[in-house]
Design a protein around this nucleic acid. Sequence first.
DNA 1: AACCGCACCCGTCATATAAG
DNA 2: CTTATATGACGGGTGCGGTT
Length: 360
Amino acid sequence: MSKCAKKKYIKTNLRQMTMETVESQHDGSVTASLTESKSAHMQTQTGQNSIPALAQVSVAGSGTGRGSPAVTLVQLPSGQTVHVQGVIQTPQPSVIQSPQIHTVQVATIAETDESAESEGVIDSHKRREILSRRPSYRKILNELSSDVPGVPKIEEEKSEEEGTPPNIATMAVPTSIYQTSTGQYIAIAQGGTIQISNPGSDGVQGLQALTMTNSGAPPPGATIVQYAAQSADGTQQFFVPGSQVVVQDEETELAPSHMAAATGDMPTYQIRAPTTGLPQGVVMAASPGSLHSPQQLAEEATRKRELRLMKNREAAKECRRRKKEYVKCLESRVAVLEVQNKKLIEELETLKDICSPKTD
DNA sequence: AACCGCACCCGTCATATAAG
DNA sequence: CTTATATGACGGGTGCGGTT
């Protein structure tokens, strides 16, 4: 294993471990430990505040070791003491449990000592089956959000606070999306707008838009874009319908008046008459249904693959964003539960002092 | 300055999960 | 069942701060 790989291995395991600890706290009966990678593990005991029947319990002694199930001593208001075992036990695959399941489990265990233990075993099997289907972060977070007021939910649609960047994933459904031989993406919208997304840059920042004002409205489904990686003069060319060529200027050359200039640092483009034949490196993409030769089929397959990669790239970004949000949500939840737990413990101590006079 | 460890980010692949 | 989407895992890159 190379050094880098080893580093990755350790890093990944650490993250997995911390996440599992986070997950453990969802069952409510184990310690909550949470940090993604800052490794400032704060350990706390989560309160059972959401269950009225268990409003007055003392939680003590918990095992959090990886590999040893967490056992928590819960003292019921009646004075009965029960051992509550953490539901999630290593080396169980990483699972995330919703608070609802946790509620049921704790309530069941609290009934009696022995029956609770036996039922707990059965329940754990059921739970494992349930938990083997890992819900998405969106669902988890939304569940958490419904529990904790003030925690924003992850919406299906992108929030507007992100400034609605011209993202391919969120823009009005384009007529066609094409991938060039150099990895750039060209999306042609219904209105004749050409959007060019550069790989390597953030899909948002790398997006450039062209508006064709004289393209003559090609029939839907018949758009053909031909792209040249770089012509001899160092420019980039896009061949668009109407036997025209969109040429990316090298630097700050002003775009002609017959096309909308890109704003800011965006490169400018010109529509020129096509040069002789197709330049080398041209990728021709056609709408489905018009394929003939094996070469075109191969190109179509490549295009599909690139499209899939692009989608997955965006999905991965979104997934990471959600995961971050999820972790933040858990962190805030832990903080809230810590405070609540502290209060409950203090309250319990007070009640103990009041209700249990010394029997000496 | 060079090196190292760490944290973070990204793209891709494989696969689990959801949707149709 | 098939297809689309979400996510874990992995490898690679970058930036930063500490150490030599």
